[in-house]
Design a protein around this nucleic acid. Structure first.
Lengths: 108, 108
DNA sequence: TTGACATATCCTGACATTATGATATATCAT
DNA sequence: ATGATATATCATAATGTCAGGATATGTCAA
């Protein structure tokens, strides 16, 4: 873990990952997969609600960003978290909700 | 740090924070402030480049999301990181760049 | 008050993202 | 092959985001 300027291209790529996770519904997908390990799309659909097309597109974005993995098993496609980065970010938020809620109320 | 379903409204708010950090230029601002502690806008402008108006808007978004703090000192406005969450995410990336680069190459 | 510097805001056009609904593809059982 | 289930893709319209440039505000010094 170096503490010096990261390459701009790397920051840009990481920004893409954060951007993909920066969506309420997609974050719920990530959290669900963290809690349940893995699940096929139709289970996510029933658990999280919304339209089927929308879910599929969100899963696609998460997959392209390297956040989740997809694996077909028969008719189903099972999704799993693909990077510990997602879990790190989730845990960061879990800490925050219990201790420091100021983040939700910017001081101006 | 609880490991159960976070409230949807909270996930939605955290998604907004991630979304704001999910931009290459803004991430460079965050990294700069982590490395240098704090800085006025014109120093950021010279260090990071870009237009003055754009920088100001990015700083505004980061501030509204609670990622940075602003404090006027005379003519200048000094900016500082406002939440350890930002640093946690940065460190997460710093770990990633040295060990696990697969995140940059999704396997499809 | 005037000028210089620092920052914020506004406007605009280009582009990206989103949800929705319809349709297409894939897989399996009959 | 047909139907049923699971998932992906497409088209579209509404909305959001972006950079750039112009302008406005705030602060200080002379």
């Amino acid at each position: 873990m170096q503490k010096q300027t990261l390459p701009i291209t790397f920051l840009s790529q990481m920004a893409d990952v954060l951007k993909v996770m920066g969506h309420g519904f997609r974050l719920r997908i990530v959290e669900f997969l963290d809690l349940h390990g893995s699940a096929p799309a139709h289970v996510l659909l029933k658990a999280l609600g919304g339209g089927q097309g929308a879910l599929s597109q969100h899963l696609c974005k998460l997959r392209l960003a390297g956040v989740i993995q997809a694996e077909r098993r028969g008719k189903e496609v099972w999704f799993t978290l693909a990077t510990p980065a997602a879990v790190t970010i989730l845990n960061c938020m879990r800490q925050r909700i219990s201790s420091d809620k100021k983040i939700l109320q910017p001081n101006r």
